[in-house]
Design a protein around this nucleic acid. Structure first.
Lengths: 207, 207
DNA sequence: TTACTTAAGATACAAAGTGTAACATAAATC
DNA sequence: GATTTATGTTACACTTTGTATCTTAAGTAA
């Protein structure tokens, strides 16, 4: 069934289903949510769900895709504005997580359809690699760059997950700084310049 | 319903259900597997499933718990035998992944019930912290140790996931070495001793 | 405004899956 | 060999799924 995504009715319906689904997942968990539940919560007919999505998985993917695209756009925008002024992509990520906390909780809670989480990891890996290249040019690394990039990206995503899981025990700015800092430690060694000066982030004042 | 786990019939049934479930997940994906499917694959009556597990999730958790306990035991055993001879817990992990590849694929593929993956991360974080402490004693770190530990553990798990996802592009020994090496780079900086000598792993011969 | 197009709602239905019950059979334990 | 315990068989009520048909309502364009 083909829909016109610009039709206000279509947009309203899809938004309603997405938001209802997110609310229900956070309340009952993914598996416990039936399609009937989603339709009821969204105040729509059950068949309307099937007209837009094949199953729950597809709806979830749609939700998370929207989230990822929003993050990618924000990163892009901020990069142009103020990346040179020292705002790292990680700062953007942490801000984004806080702004869309419910969805990130779902994405991080092992229900996040491999694809989207993988794309996020790839996103961070790309930025990490780019950072390395801006830093050393075509200097030959002694460790394969794909390994470095995925090591860094995994650490950063994992730390963000941990941060959210533990109800944000440190402020955003500090997390972003430390994440960069710990990652760069490994990178600088991989680049053969462990002595490179890298100011340590200031300890946070409160929890 | 209470069962005697030592009864041969019980063990046979549970093992059969677990193995059948793993086969089916790898073939059709978690969501597509019904309890009837599991029972049929295991050549058991459907009601037998309900006598042992409340739902699919519980069965999966059982599978993954077994996996984790086996890893923890192996780590413990190897630690005593040969940790001093330079076999890192990461080497044990990579060996374990290779030996139980199907289950690890499930655990890593965002179906791994937060709990078990989280326990694995905690496991690695603990070892990382212990490594730091053995290294510097009670030296005061400038970065909170929980952050360091989870950063390291996330990087290591993430890299292992990446490695499996990309069909093991590098040999195990190399991955374990590089993983330790990249992680230690950050740690050594956190410890304030970036100049500490750390021999770079040798490049792998083939892919 | 009217006519046209398209999406959503109402109702119904077959098929599959879930969770439980009562009873019969087979395997383990003593 | 008798007893205990786990599994198998059959049956049932209930929920969920996915689809079909027809009606109503909302957007679009003359």
């Amino acid at each position: 069934m083909v829909f016109n995504p610009d039709d206000p009715r279509v947009r309203k319906t899809r938004r309603g289903l997405q938001e209802a689904f997110i609310r229900l997942i956070l309340k009952k968990g993914y598996d416990a949510v039936s399609i009937q539940d989603i339709a009821t919560e969204a105040e729509a007919a059950r068949i309307t769900f099937y007209r837009h999505y094949a199953d729950k998985e597809e709806l979830l993917t749609d939700c998370l895709n929207t989230l990822y695209e929003d993050l990618a756009q924000t990163t892009e925008r901020v990069s142009k504005e103020a990346l040179a002024q020292g705002i790292s992509p990680l700062r953007v990520l942490y801000d984004h997580i806080e702004a869309h906390e419910p969805l990130y909780r779902i994405l991080f809670s092992s229900r996040g359809t491999h694809t989207v989480l993988e794309r996020l990891r790839h996103h961070l890996a790309t930025h990490a690699l780019k950072g390395i290249q801006d830093f050393v040019g075509a200097s030959d690394l002694q460790i394969p760059p794909d390994i470095i990039a995925y090591h860094a990206a995994s650490a950063q995503i994992g730390l963000a997950m941990w941060w959210l899981d533990h109800d944000k025990p440190y402020p955003i700015v500090y997390m972003a700084q430390v994440s960069v800092w710990l990652t760069l430690g490994g990178l600088l060694r991989a680049l053969g310049i462990p002595e490179f000066p890298l100011p340590i982030p200031a300890q946070p004042s409160g929890g």
